[in-house]
Amino acid sequence: MRMDFKYLKEYLGWLYYQYLLITGIYVLEPWEKSIFNSVLFSSMAMVIYASYAFVPVHVRLALKFFSGICGEQPERTMALIN
């Protein structure tokens, strides 16, 4: 169990190092790193929260709209043609 925890910690450390290298913030000073991280993580948190709060409502509305188009339209048009 303890070994697993240590392994996980090492893996997270490696992942953070890769994140530093790929974004290029490896070369920045600590205060710049924290600015970048806080901007990135806060915007990501906002995106996640927004998708949690608003996406289900939109999906339900969209479903209703499309079922309105696809589900009932054919019969009425048929009636009109007749």
């Binding site: 790929i22 290029g24 913030i25 920045l28």
Partner: peptide
């Protein structure tokens, strides 16, 4: 693509 992104981020901090 990631290289250009890295240079982009560093350029933004350079301007800052």
């Amino acid at each position: 693509v990631l290289t250009y992104m890295g240079y982009g981020i560093l350029t933004i901090f350079g301007y800052l």
